[in-house]
Each structure stands twice: as structure tokens, then as C-alpha cells.
Amino acid sequence: MYTTVNPEGQLNNYANEPQMYYAQSPNQEQQQRYLFQGAMAVLFVTALMLTSIAVS
């Protein structure tokens, strides 16, 4: 962090910026895992909706 002082004596603190990097696309195994997690989430939400309809 570095600090600057303007002519009135006020301090300004600036945070250090993190180093930038490019994201990498997921490999085949990660893509299959994401697909499985998405399918499980859809089944879970569907079960919750059907349960709430059955109870009401």
C-alpha cells in the first residue's frame, strides 16, 4: 500500500493491485463433473417444488 499527500495535507491510501492472469477452460473431467452437479441441482430443486406443491 502506498500513500500520497495532497497540498492540503490530506492522505490518500492506495491498495496494491493483484497480478492479473487469464482463466483456463475446464478439462473434460471437470466438464463432466459440472454436468453431474447441474443435473443433481435440477433434481433437488424439482423435488423441493413437488414437495411444496404436495404439502400445500
Rank of each mutant, 00 (worst) to 15 (best):
A54M: 03
V45M: 03
Q37L: 13
V5I: 15
R33P: 01
A47H: 04
V5S: 07
L11D: 02
A54L: 02
L50I: 05
P26Y: 03
Q30F: 03
Y34T: 06
L50P: 02
P26H: 02
V42T: 08
E17I: 08
T3S: 09
L43Q: 03
T51H: 06
M49I: 11
V42C: 08
Y34L: 12
S52R: 05
Q32F: 06
F44R: 00
Y21C: 07
Y21G: 06
T4L: 14
A54H: 02
N27Y: 00
V55A: 12
Y21Q: 14
Q37T: 02
T46E: 04
L48S: 02
A39V: 11
M40S: 05
Q28F: 06
G38N: 11
L50C: 11
M40D: 02
A15Y: 06
A54S: 01
N6I: 00
N6Y: 01
T3R: 03
P7C: 10
P18C: 03
M1W: 02
I53C: 09
T51A: 13
G9V: 01
N6C: 00
T3N: 03
Q28I: 08
Q37P: 01
E8H: 10
S56A: 12
Q10T: 04
Y21R: 14
F36D: 09
P18W: 01
F44H: 03
V5E: 13
Q31S: 06
S25D: 12
Q10D: 15
Q10C: 13
S52W: 08
V55N: 11
I53K: 09
G38F: 06
G9P: 00
T3I: 13
P26F: 00
S52H: 05
Y34Q: 13
N16E: 15
V45F: 08
M49E: 04
N12S: 15
E29V: 05
Q30T: 06
P7H: 07
V55F: 13
A54K: 01
Q10E: 15
P18E: 03
Y22K: 14
Y34I: 11
S56C: 09
E17M: 10
E17Y: 03
A15T: 05
Q19N: 09
A15N: 11
A47I: 07
G38E: 07
Q32M: 10
T3L: 06
V5N: 04
N27C: 01
N6V: 00
S25H: 06
M20A: 14
E29T: 07
N13I: 15
S25Y: 14
A39M: 10
A47C: 09
T46C: 04
T4P: 05
Q24Y: 02
G38Y: 06
S56F: 13
A15E: 13
V45Y: 03
Y2K: 11
T4R: 13
Q30L: 05
A47M: 07
E29W: 00
E17T: 12
Q24N: 12
E29K: 04
M1D: 01
V5A: 10
E8S: 14
Q28D: 09
V45A: 09
Q37N: 09
P7R: 11
A39Q: 10
N27M: 00
T3E: 06
V42E: 07
Q30H: 02
V42Y: 07
S56D: 12
E8L: 15
Y2Q: 11
N13R: 14
Y22T: 12
S52K: 01
Q19G: 06
Q31E: 11
M40H: 02
P7K: 14
N13Y: 14
